[in-house]
Amino acid sequence: MKYIYDMHQMMLKNNIILVYEGEFTQEITKSVLAMAERNMDSIGEESGIKRKVFNVMVECLQNIVKHGDEYISSEININTAIFMIGKHKDSYIITSGNPIRNDMVEDLRSKLDMINSLDKEGLKSLYKDIIKSGTGLTNKGGAGLGFVDMARKSGQKLEYGFEPLQGDHSFFSLKTTVPRG
């Protein structure tokens, strides 16, 4: 039974206000967004911060939803992901982790490094270039537009990491910080 206590302690220690683990769908996305919004409303969070957190959450959650079906593997239960929000005195931390195929790692890494190398104006022009050209855009978005938007709305670098999983998959972790006030 101790894991319940440990989990609770871990969440308190990291100021985690919401965790979801499991399969991600549009319906789940809407529920998670509604819960996070209610939480921010209940503490009277400033509307500008709320909008930015909402923005980052949507891109983060929909990224997982749209890529989820690409990584179904029969070997291990790989089609599950985690999403967390931490609320600190000076920031919200939006984190996600999901399995991806190893052959996606380098592409993701180079996209994120490129986005992190840009300043505000650079991100703005990249955003416009992507939506204007439609390059790499699928029905689901794509081309890293979601990451560009997360970097723009947060005004911070996107932190990421990869952990090797069984078989030909890795666990992709992403962390976005939205400063409060």
Binding site: R51, F54, N55, V58, Q62, G134, N139, L145, D149
Partner: peptide, 12 residues
């Protein structure tokens, strides 16, 4: 009030 990045291409 809000639009996601996937909508931005369609708005364009």
């Amino acid at each position: 009030e809000y639009f996601n990045t996937a909508s931005s291409k369609l708005i364009l």
